[in-house]
Design a protein around this nucleic acid. Structure first.
Lengths: 206, 206
DNA sequence: AAAGATCGGTAACAGTGTTACCGACAAGAA
DNA sequence: TTCTTGTCGGTAACACTGTTACCGATCTTT
């Protein structure tokens, strides 16, 4: 139940909310997390700082919106990986897409996993969304288990191992701890190494 | 060439410098990186904010000192791992010590590897120190290669893979992405999984 | 003893997130 | 229609951050 005014107000809110969010997104990818100040975002969006507080409840609310946006983009990339080949090849492609996303939008990755927005901790609902995205990886692993291309562990367990490994690899790569030439082959080698442990015995090559 | 005054001054500097650094270290482990403000550190050390600028050249200088302190502590832990058993068992122990350090002093780990101090990037000399610590891991891997307990890769390469994996595992664990009960066995499983890829064929146990 | 230099404390500056105030505007009541 | 009510947003302030200009105090040098 809402009066027409409140409804219009809400629609007006949603459009200016989108404008603020767009400004923040643009600022994040173009100038990095340090440029995400309330005043700057408001200036870019053409409104006052107060709006950010009424619409998002403060900077943390906007941070969470960006956090969710990052997971949405990651999820989009993971979903875009084709199912055509075998489950194991697809799993490798999913892991590749994870890295590709982190390298394509490192500032989002910093926001999501490296605490780039000081003082921000994701809330409960946001955490659920993150877990949902992670579920895509678990599903890919589960498909391999069902097809018999992986064995010897639970899907959640193997997915955790893969996530630890790729997260570590990507984090260090983003912080440019590695030579650029080494990064890509080492990423593949790390993924295959972890998976080798769970290959059926007759499949282990080298 | 230095006058006695300058010498005394320098000694006086070193003692107050140590006091400031101690205050910062205590503040870091007791209240986390967010408490590391120039005013707060100066207050705890019983001096003015100006001192931090004359002695460390600003907050970044102090941040770098804390960064180096973190690597010194990590290095101490890695060096404390005994050599008694075989190279491979020792390598596993080194990896365990890495995690133990991160869990014992998570705020140092955040400073060193998770960019917990906004705006701080380690300088060149500090990076060399970090590489030196990393060299301990490479040496442990090299010992395994020489003993024939690992094969099929260069020491630096295998050490990189291990570092990616353990860093990812520890980072996610610090951010409490895992159930506490799962973390420890999964860490071991991850380490052994990566190493399995490089075990001599006759050593691979399921 | 007087002149010169260096160090450190005070107080300010520009920035941050946040909020109290107040005017403007639309909804509902008389 | 007119008046009251309430909500929303802009301005300006608050408390905080890192940083620095000023200036007095202290020690070296002449």
């Amino acid at each position: 139940m809402s009066t027409p005014y409140q409804q219009a107000q809400r629609e007006g809110q949603s459009v200016v909310r989108a404008a603020v969010l767009d400004a923040a997104k643009l600022l994040l990818v173009s100038e990095g997390p340090a440029a995400l100040t309330v005043r700057r975002i408001a200036a870019e969006a053409g409104c006052s700082t107060k709006v950010i507080y009424t619409l998002f409840g403060g900077k943390d609310g906007l941070s969470e919106a960006l956090w969710l946006e990052g997971f949405a983009r990651l999820e989009q990339r993971l979903l875009a990986v084709p199912h055509e080949e075998g489950p194991l090849d697809r799993l490798m492609a999913v892991l590749g897409a994870y890295r590709a996303y982190a390298l394509a939008e490192p500032d989002y990755y910093r926001v999501m996993f490296l605490g780039a927005l000081p003082g921000f901790r994701a809330g409960e609902e946001a955490t659920r969304t993150a877990k949902h995205t992670f579920g895509l990886l678990v599903a890919s692993v589960a498909a391999c288990l069902e097809a018999g291309e992986l064995t010897g562990g639970a899907a959640a367990e193997i997915a955790d191992l893969l996530w630890m490994a790729v997260h570590g690899a990507v984090s260090l790569e983003i912080m440019s701890y590695f030579e650029e030439a080494d990064a890509s082959p080492r990423y593949r080698l790390l993924c295959t190494s972890v998976l080798t442990r769970f290959l059926p015995a007759h499949d282990r090559r080298s």
